[in-house]
Amino acid sequence: MSELPRWEVFKQDGPGKVHQAVGSVHAGDGQHALFTARSVFARRPAAVSLWVARADHIFALTKQELDAGKGLSEGNGGTFYIFGKKTNRRSMTLGDHLGTLEASNPQAALEAARTQYGDDLLVWWLVPDSALVRSTDSAETVESWFAPAKDKTYKQQSSYGVVGQHASAHKKAVRGGDHD
């Protein structure tokens, strides 16, 4: 057997926020990938929903490729989830979910997305609806999959804030200022 497939993971941090591409996991199937994504990407707050999609089912294009006249390969029409990277600012995530649209094929979906969401995005990802596996949106799932992470304060650096303050005060006194 070759390695298990790679699944891209999209995490929603809270109600009213959009899903963002956070990384990937190796897993056997979609449900396994979803549970794995929860273990890997939601072990700290905050999350309320996860989506996964097999990496090789996603259509991706960078601005540079687009400018060079590259297009997307052929594929079925249907509903596409559009993700885009907007800035070069330092970030933990590749891009945001911009919206969803219907198109007769991936290339048409990309054209429609460029019209709708602007032409200056740095990276485009198009995920066919059929490729997405989603966590349940029920309150019970949110409570059991995601909410308990908030109580695990021991893995948050803010729990250790007081420690070493005397040492950094000492450092300032010695150096006459913070070197950062």
């Binding site: 700290r44 970030s91 650096q157 729990s159």
Partner: peptide
């Protein structure tokens, strides 16, 4: 490199906890 940079931003935010818990213990 975008993906490396993003991995590092995520790692740094978690690694601070590692550093602080170690410091707390030794102090």
């Amino acid at each position: 490199y975008g993906p490396y940079s993003r991995a590092m931003v995520r790692i740094c935010s978690e690694e601070t906890f590692h550093h602080k818990q170690g410091k707390e213990m030794i102090v």
